[in-house]
C-alpha cells in the first residue's frame, strides 16, 4: 500500500473542496449556495480521513493538517482538473461532474480494497459522492439543455476541461487501484449525460499530465495554496 496513493485521494478532495468553498455567498441562487457548501463540506471531511490515514501510514509524525498546510505545490499529488479555477458556474459544475464521474467509479472499486481502513473511507465517501454525481449530472443536463446562452457556456466549459480528463485514468503502481480500468464505465456515464444535455464530447482525447505525479502542476495551484496556507505558515507556533 502506497502512502502516495492515499495522498492522491486526499489531495484531490482537498483542492476541489477548497475551490468549491470559494463560491460560498456568491452562487446564482440560495439553493445552489447551500448545495455547493454541502459538497465542499463533504470533500473536506473526506480529506481529513484520507490525509489522516496517509500520515499514520507514513509514520513520520505528520498529521492531516500538516500535510494540508505545510507542503509546497510540488509535493501535492492532486489531478490538474481539480486545481482549475472556478471561472463561471458552468465551468465549476462541469469540473464537478467530470470529477464526480471518475470519483464515484474509483470509490466503488476502493470499497472492495483489501485494506479495511481504505475500504471504510471509501464506503463513507461513496454515499456522499453518489449524491454529488447525481446533482452535478442533473445540473449539466439542465444547463446544457436550458437556453442558447447556457448551452454555449456548457459546451465551452466541456471543451475547456476535457484535456484534464485523461489524467484521471493515467495510472502507476502508487495508485490504490488500476485507474485505467475505470475509463469504460466513466465514458458510458458521461456519454449518456452529455447526450441528454445536448452537448458534444470533444474529438481529441489529448490529456495534460503532471498533477498526480507532481511533475508539473498548473500556475493556479500555487495561488490557491498561498491563500489556504497563509495562517499556519505565518504563525507556525500557533494552535487554532
Amino acid at each position: 500500500m502506497s502512502v502516495t496513493g492515499l495522498i492522491r485521494m486526499g489531495d484531490n478532495t482537498l483542492v476541489l473542496g477548497q475551490r468549491v468553498s470559494e463560491w460560498c455567498g456568491h452562487a446564482p441562487a440560495l439553493e445552489e449556495d447551500i448545495a455547493l457548501a454541502n459538497t465542499a463540506l463533504d470533500l473536506i471531511g473526506q480529506t481529513q480521513l484520507w490525509l489522516r490515514l496517509a500520515a499514520e501510514r507514513e509514520g513520520e509524525g505528520r498529521t492531516a493538517d500538516t500535510l494540508a498546510y505545510h507542503r509546497d505545490a510540488w509535493d501535492f499529488r492532486n489531478l490538474l482538473l481539480v486545481e482549475q479555477p472556478n471561472r463561471d458556474f458552468g465551468v465549476t459544475m462541469m469540473r464537478q461532474f467530470l470529477f464526480d464521474s471518475w470519483h464515484l467509479e474509483a470509490l466503488t472499486k476502493l470499497v472492495e480494497h483489501d485494506d479495511t481502513e481504505i475500504s471504510a473511507i471509501a464506503q463513507k465517501s461513496v454515499k456522499e459522492v453518489t449524491y454529488h454525481r447525481e446533482r452535478s449530472g442533473d445540473m449539466i443536463i439542465a444547463l446544457g439543455d436550458g437556453t442558447e446562452e447556457s448551452h454555449a457556456r456548457m459546451q465551452s466549459a466541456l471543451d475547456r476541461l476535457w484535456p484534464y480528463v485523461g489524467e484521471m485514468f493515467s495510472t502507476d503502481t502508487d495508485d490504490l487501484i488500476d485507474m485505467a480500468a475505470l475509463r469504460p464505465a466513466f465514458d458510458a456515464h458521461v456519454g449518456a449525460v452529455l447526450a441528454e444535455a445536448t452537448l458534444t464530447r470533444p474529438e481529441s482525447d489529448f490529456a495534460h499530465l503532471g498533477g498526480k505525479t507532481g511533475a508539473r502542476h498548473t500556475e493556479h495551484l500555487g495561488h490557491m495554496l498561498a491563500t489556504m496556507q497563509v495562517l499556519p505558515r505565518s504563525y507556525p507556533d500557533a494552535t487554532w
Partner: peptide
C-alpha cells in the same frame, strides 16, 4: 479559504451554509 485547520474550515463552512 484561509481557515487555519481542516476542522476549522469545515466548521466555518457549515456555519456560513
Amino acid at each position: 479559504t484561509r481557515a487555519p485547520t481542516l476542522e476549522r474550515k469545515a466548521i466555518l463552512l457549515a456555519k456560513v451554509q
